[in-house]
């Protein structure tokens, strides 16, 4: 299945802004975070097609997963 992953802000450094590629059925959001070495404690939001999802969410063909880092300074 084809999934598009969009990374935001600091997560782009050394990775990419947007990438569409083939994933095997059963891939979860957590698997992709792992694959991209994105530490869980730095994640601000994960959305599939503009809907918030958790790590255990399964991906479907055609999904767009957006991953934002946490921002907390003032």
């Amino acid at each position: 299945m084809k999934v598009t992953v969009k990374l935001f802000a600091t997560f782009r450094a050394g990775r990419f802004g947007e990438q569409t590629k083939e994933y095997s059925p059963g891939t979860t959001v957590g698997d992709i975070l792992n694959e991209l070495s994105l530490p869980l404690d730095e994640i601000g939001a994960t959305l599939i097609n503009h809907r918030h999802v958790e790590e255990d969410q399964l991906l479907k063909d055609g999904d767009t997963l957006s991953i934002f880092p946490l921002v907390g300074g003032g």
């Binding site: 802000a9 600091t10 730095e42 601000g44 907390g72 300074g73």
Partner: peptide
């Protein structure tokens, strides 16, 4: 990077924004 949101009484936006990490630091 930065972010902005407005929460009126009865809404729970801040809690949702920081639902994953309630005690950490961000990109800053």
């Amino acid at each position: 990077y930065g972010q902005v949101a407005t929460q009126f009484p009865g809404e729970n936006t801040l809690r949702k924004i920081y639902s994953r990490n309630t005690d950490g630091k961000g990109v800053e």
